[in-house]
């Protein structure tokens, strides 16, 4: 069908405005990261007059960025891998079997996903502190403690998304695997997992991204040695100076890996995230 002229113009104008809105912070981030400190302390300038890569060098020294980076990588990786592993078994059970309590389990998983994080943060903090006092187990302020709190949000949506992916794998595959002499676990790991691999990777990446950007738990449950990027970047604002150019350089550096990962896997991610809504 031919498009009327008004529609074509609405599209041109509408999408241009939205693209501008979307691009503005990205533009500011990239150009400010390339400016010397003096140029981000005065009035804003659209076009950098003195280009420098110095902020990308300095950002590692102003705060212990490398340590924060390592903390974020370790905590996010372990939290996402652990939740995907556990969620895969649970998701397979929910997707392939009818059993008593299946409905109840799904409801609990779905509802914990929408509870505010603050609801779990307060009691977990009190539990960690008191457990540490009683047993000497240093959960509060440790990476392990942070990983446990991250599971509160990575696990429910991993289960939820994986049930969706596994539902889309034809059951004939399970049957065929069983005919070939596999047990249910053999069918899961030899046949279903390879077939669902893109989906499983997508869930893991999504869990990683969510953990990577988490602020609420990290702001309370970490100390200086275990701080993650999401909270650590605040350190560029010191008593004397706010190193905006380094903040922008660091923000760009910590965004790039996850944005690239997301865009590469967007087909699978979008399918998983919207599965619940479109079904």
């Amino acid at each position: 069908m031919r498009e009327p002229t008004w529609f074509r113009w609405t599209r041109r104008v509408g999408l241009s405005v939205l693209s501008g809105f979307t691009l503005l912070p990205i533009y500011v981030m990239v150009t400010s990261a390339l400016k010397p400190l003096a140029d981000v302390q005065g009035n804003f300038a659209w076009f950098p007059t003195r280009l420098t890569l110095q902020p990308f060098v300095d950002m590692w020294h102003t705060i212990p960025l490398a340590r924060y980076f390592l903390n974020s990588v370790v905590v996010s990786s372990i939290a996402s891998l652990a939740s995907v592993a556990i969620a895969l078994l649970a998701g397979y059970a929910v997707s392939r079997y009818r059993f008593r309590g299946r409905q109840a389990f799904s409801v609990v998983v779905l509802s914990t996903q929408m509870f505010p994080g603050i609801l779990f943060l307060l009691p977990l903090f009190v539990i960690f502190v008191n457990l540490g006092e009683a047993t000497g187990l240093p959960l509060y302020g440790s990476r392990l403690g942070l990983i446990i709190t991250y599971l509160t949000f990575t696990l429910p949506f991993s289960i939820w998304m994986l049930v969706g992916y596994l539902d889309s794998i034809p059951r004939e595959l399970d049957e065929a695997a069983k005919v070939d002499g596999n047990g249910p676990l053999g069918a899961l790991f030899r046949v279903v997992v390879p077939a669902a691999l893109p989906g499983i990777v997508a869930v893991a990446i999504y869990a990683f991204m969510t953990a990577w950007g988490e602020v609420l738990f990290a702001s309370v449950m970490t100390d200086d040695s275990t701080r993650t990027l999401a909270v650590g970047l605040q350190g560029y604002a010191t008593q004397n100076n706010i190193y905006w150019n380094q903040i922008m350089a660091a923000s760009l550096t910590v965004s790039l890996p996850v944005v690239i990962g997301f865009l590469l896997l967007q087909r699978f991610l979008v399918a998983g995230m919207t599965a619940g809504a479109v079904k």
């Binding site: 912070p25 804003f44 910590v254 944005v259 865009l263």
Partner: peptide, 29 residues
């Protein structure tokens, strides 16, 4: 379509810290 996904893919703390720079009274865009 890809461009519109970027704000969603970016870590929230990184994009919001950029916004706080943009909204500074004296140095913001």
């Amino acid at each position: 379509r890809t461009l519109f996904l970027v704000p969603y893919a970016m870590p929230v703390f990184a994009s919001v810290i950029t916004w706080s720079f943009m909204l500074q009274r004296d140095t913001g865009v």
